[in-house]
Structure formats: structure tokens, C-alpha cells
Amino acid sequence: MAGSPDLWARWGDFGKFNTRGVKGGEALILELNRIVYSSGIASPVTSKRGLSARLRYLDSPAGRAALKDQGVTARTIRSWMKGKSTPTAANRERIDSAYWGRRRENLIRSGWLKRHLDNDGRGRRMEIYPVDQSQVPAERSRPTLQQRSITVRYIWGDLVDAWAAQDADTVDEIWDDVISDLDSDYNAYAHVSSVGIGA
């Protein structure tokens, strides 16, 4: 585990008294996924509009390569593009995953995600929801854990890089940086129930 050496240990034996939560880094990854996958084409791939928008997006060498990786032959793609045939339900799924794969790559490559989160250096507001202690016996629970809200700056470039490289250890280290802004009780937020980024 990355992060400061004793960050994870300071809580004690996490989950021993039924505290529920995930590591902050994991929550960050989930929230980045939400931001990326809630942008883009809104119409579902099952609709005509959503399908043609995706096919248009994938109409490039890289897009065709992504479709090919999904197991769609060039001939089939040509036939869709010309409108001779419409994709089957299974192929629509493939088109959808090729679309989201390409879009994710493009958001990373173009730097949009970093710029969006960095917000011209102003950063983004991050809401940190502490671990769920509803199942913890009262004498064992930490009553002072509250929801925290902080403006996070400067980390977004590194975070997006680590997220793009699927490097969970680096994301953990970045999380350590984020919560070190939470003054003395920061290690109570090593695990959280979720993180919300206002972006």
C-alpha cells in the first residue's frame, strides 16, 4: 500500500467493528469515472440518434481500430456506415464500449480532463463523506467524524495521469496529499464512504 507509511494503520484494524468504507484513493477513482462517463453522448446506443453519434465519433483510423479490437470486422463497419445494415444488439454493445474507450483516451490525450478539474488553477470543491459507522457499536464509534468539504488544487494533473495509467498506488499517495489539508484528524479520512467532486 502506498501513501504515508502508517496512514492505513492509524485507524487501527479497519472494519473490525463493522465500519464500512473504501480507501480514499478508490473513492477518487470512482468519482473520476463518474465525471468522465457522465459527459459525452447522452442518448443510449439503442436509439438511432445515439448509435449514429457513436459511429460518427468512431469514424477515424483510431476509432476503427478500437472497433476492430472489439472484434468487429472492417466489412461490417463499412456496411453500417453506408447504412446497408444496422448493428445487432451484441454489436451495439461493442460499439458502445469502443466509444467510451475512445472517449476516455481522447479526454486524457487532449488534456480536457486535467483542464476541467484544474479549473484555471482554481481547483474544484471536493466533498469527503466519512466512513459509514451506522453498524458500529456506540462505544466503538467515532462521533466526531463529519462530512468535510475542501477546495483541492494542484493535484489534478498528477491525479489524472495516475488514473489514466490505472496506477492505484499513486492515486493513494495523492489521496494522502488531499487529506493532509484536513488538519489534525486527517488520518480518520484515509477510508471514506465516498468522495464528491463538484465538476
Binding site: 443510449p44 470543491r125 466533498e127 463523506y129 462530512q147 465516498s194 464528491g196
Partner: peptide, 19 residues
């Protein structure tokens, strides 16, 4: 009060599909 803007969405509040 400082309200939460991105609280975790409970399962029952999650849309099952776009429409």
C-alpha cells in the same frame, strides 16, 4: 447550513436507464 452537492447517491435514487 452548508449543503452537500455531491453526496453518494442511494441505490433507490439511481436511475435505472437514461429514460
Amino acid at each position: 447550513y452548508e449543503h452537500s452537492e455531491f453526496p453518494p447517491t442511494q441505490e433507490i435514487l439511481r436511475k435505472k436507464s437514461q429514460k
